[in-house]
């Protein structure tokens, strides 16, 4: 037997063994493919959430910016909520799939100190407000659903629903060691600087500005509008849009103009309020800034004296706190 025949004989001998190899290889290939398919499916599934997160971050960085939504919210609070301030470090932002949660505290100056009064939890899906939770610690809650007559600050041509006589009695019944917040409506329109000059002994915290619609509290379209105004006291906090402002009136107008393109969001944030910004900005630019009411805060006795101020027509008592006046 030559070597070739030997090789053939050997191959014949190994025959059955070599027949089984393809089967094993096929099984192995099938198993490998199966695992590759399973793992590639898992890969695609696991890539979805992080990819959406990245898109969400990209949207809030370059689309409608998260800081824009925050500014809209804070500006809306400053101009629609009488005697209201916010603090930067009290803001909390949280991002989830295509949405952003914004939580913050709202503060009020009562007497000489600033107190947290409301906690807001807002949820935006892209730039649309889809969730709003407000927990309030206020003892005197401002009317939740504004009508033409239920405002606490009213134009000289308006008659409020509350009775100033009742409010005066409530104020008179308070201990002298208290500080109060009061909503004063005037018998005419006044410049804010004249109002501040005539009200010594208290802080004028917020001024409601006449924008051409407050005599009826209806816009040109017939929608009920709410008072808008601006904080009068100097605000040194870095966060405040009024920091180092020479004229709060100019800042107020700038804020209205900033909010105008985002009016829908601002209205959602400020609940049950029609802002009608275009109409009001137009009026302010043509006629300037005159106030028909202010929010003041200070010692109870000093606020009581203001009822004799010839400017004051109506008074509504707001929050009351124990003495904290240090001036």
């Amino acid at each position: 037997m030559n070597s070739y025949e030997k090789l053939l004989a050997q191959a014949k001998q190994d025959g059955p063994a070599s027949k089984s190899d393809p089967g094993r290889n096929i099984k192995k290939a099938v198993a490998t493919s199966k695992w590759k398919l399973i793992l590639s499916t898992i890969t695609v599934a696991l890539l979805i959430v992080p990819t959406i997160y990245m898109l969400t971050f990209i949207y809030y960085a370059f689309g409608t910016k998260s800081t824009t939504l925050m500014d809209i919210t804070s500006y809306t609070m400053y101009i629609t909520e009488p005697n209201s301030t916010l603090e930067e470090l009290e803001f909390d932002m949280d991002f989830s799939l295509f949405s952003m949660d914004l939580s913050f505290e709202q503060f009020k100056q009562i007497g000489d100190e600033v107190y947290p009064v409301k906690t807001y939890d807002l949820t935006f899906a892209f730039d649309e407000l889809v969730g709003k939770e407000i927990s309030s610690r206020l003892e005197k809650a401002y009317p939740k659903y504004p009508t033409e007559t239920n405002q606490w600050l009213v134009h000289p041509k308006q008659v409020p629903e509350f009775s100033t006589a009742d409010e005066s009695l409530k104020l008179a019944g308070l201990p002298e060691e208290t500080v109060v917040e009061a909503y004063l409506s005037f018998n005419d329109l006044y410049a804010v600087k004249d109002v501040v000059k005539s009200m010594e002994g208290v802080d004028v915290a917020w001024a409601a500005v006449y924008t051409g619609v407050e005599d009826k509290m209806l816009s040109a379209d017939g929608d009920v509008v709410s008072p808008i105004g601006y904080p009068v006291q100097a605000d040194p906090t870095n966060w405040s849009p009024f920091k180092d402002a020479k004229s709060h009136e100019d800042v107020f107008l700038d804020m209205l103009k900033y909010l105008q393109p985002y009016e829908e969001i601002a209205v959602d944030v400020s609940a049950h309020k029609n802002l009608e910004l275009a109409e009001r900005i137009d009026y302010l630019e043509k006629n300037g800034f005159m106030s028909y009411g202010v929010v003041v805060t200070g010692p109870k006795n000093e606020v009581e004296k203001l009822q004799n101020n010839p400017m004051v027509r109506y008074m509504k008592l707001g929050e009351v706190k124990l003495w904290n006046w240090t001036r």
């Binding site: 990245m54 990209i58 809030y60 960085a61 910016k65 998260s66 800081t67 925050m70 932002m93 991002f95």
Partner: peptide, 11 residues
Amino acid sequence: MFLLGWFIIPF
């Protein structure tokens, strides 16, 4: 997340 975090969270 790190880079855009600087843009979108200003605190």
